[in-house]
Design a protein around this nucleic acid. Structure first.
Lengths: 214, 214
DNA sequence: CTTTGACTTTTTAAACAATATAGTCACATA
DNA sequence: TATGTGACTATATTGTTTAAAAAGTCAAAG
């Protein structure tokens, strides 16, 4: 799946290609970006791209992996600066939201396009959730240790919380009119996410109803 | 949108048609059910259907409205038997889940078919949520009056909660393999719904973080 | 008032051609 | 040898035509 080359020069070339691909991916999405166009953008021939990447999918996979790495790096950096589990979660939600928009340019990955790029999208999506859940699990456990949260199974909780947030995002996207998220729609979304998080944390702090699983 | 007739005899005939349409709708979905087939099922001519209903859409709209009416009737009946707001909400979620499956035969309304029947589906969906939110708002307010819930805006809360539940449903459906919800998948779904509801209620009971809106 | 068969119109589906894009390769150049 | 290219092939997408199916109409009849 990776580029076939080694050496610093080659690496710079690969980065160059990735940048170009990233730009078009963010702007037009997967299926509306051709290898020809990417090549032209950086004054190369299409064939040269195939020297560095075996196929289109691999190229874009590399783009996405790059962004994802940076994305989670920033999240963990911020989390590390905090001490309380509850503020960590709140921060996590906020950061996740803004970074997701910034790095992955979500708007272009939307429904219309998602039949063609399904394999890529699904992979991206699964990894995202996997890592997110791992981080959440850690934070929940930290809250439990420090005595402010009460619950049974942290990873199950992380699963639920992650689903719940994703659900809110989907519902907001379903409601929106155009193909882009307007400023108002985005504000509403972040407000919903905040409220849900706030209630969720509260629920964990005074959790008396929650039964042990099965 | 309604049948053009009056009189008890005509009404019985309309019911007869609706039953036949309902059966096929549940079995095959909107686009895979023809007027011809419905007519044949009850030994009528297709033209006769058009005497009672102006078009296909109206016929199926009537079917859906029928089921919806029955659906919410049962919910409100059950709610009326309860006194505590928190158990009301739990019951509401449980009932909503089982009745939705029973009456609206959700499985057939799914993604594959939803491009063709979009207008109908959207309408159905919007009404559902509208009524659901109304009921939720009432229950939340009841909880506030009796002093067990603390929050600012009941209808906003209903909106959030309703979204959140729907989000969990969607996430579970996205995860599922085949086209039908298996027993295991359904169990997982209902478990998630229960946990989310439980946490949500807890959050409302000890709500100290929740800020007044904006 | 209700029902129908025969009819017209509209929608959907299949088959095919035309186009665009992914991907290959023999050769060129440094 | 490592990198790059133009010209090629194979594959996937899109557009167009045609045929079939289904929606919807109507004059006439019971």
């Amino acid at each position: 799946m990776e580029a076939v080359t080694s050496g610093a020069e080659a690496e710079r070339k690969v980065d160059y290609i990735l940048k170009a691909a990233q730009k078009r991916l963010g702007l037009y999405g997967y299926s509306k970006t051709t290898m020809q166009e990417i090549a032209a953008d950086i004054s190369m021939s299409k064939a040269a791209l195939y020297y560095y990447f075996p196929d289109k999918e691999s190229l874009f996979k590399a783009v996405i992996e790059n962004e994802q790495k940076e994305f989670f790096l920033q999240i963990e950096k911020r989390i590390a600066q905090l001490t309380d589990a509850d503020t960590m979660i709140i921060e996590l939600v906020e950061l996740r939201h803004s970074l997701f928009r910034k790095f992955l340019n979500l708007s272009k990955f939307r429904l219309s396009d998602n039949t063609t790029m399904n394999p890529l999208l699904k992979d991206l999506y699964n990894r995202m959730r996997e890592i997110e859940k791992k981080i959440l699990t850690t934070v929940f456990n930290k809250g439990k240790e420090s005595g402010i949260f009460q619950f049974d199974d942290a990873s199950e909780l992380a699963f639920l919380f992650s689903d719940l947030l994703q659900g809110i995002r989907i519902m907001e996207i379903k409601r929106m009119n155009g193909l882009e998220l307007t400023e108002a729609e985005n504000n509403h979304l972040i407000k919903m996410l905040r409220e849900a998080t706030s209630l969720f944390i509260n629920g964990l702090k005074y959790n008396k109803l929650m039964q042990p699983t099965q």
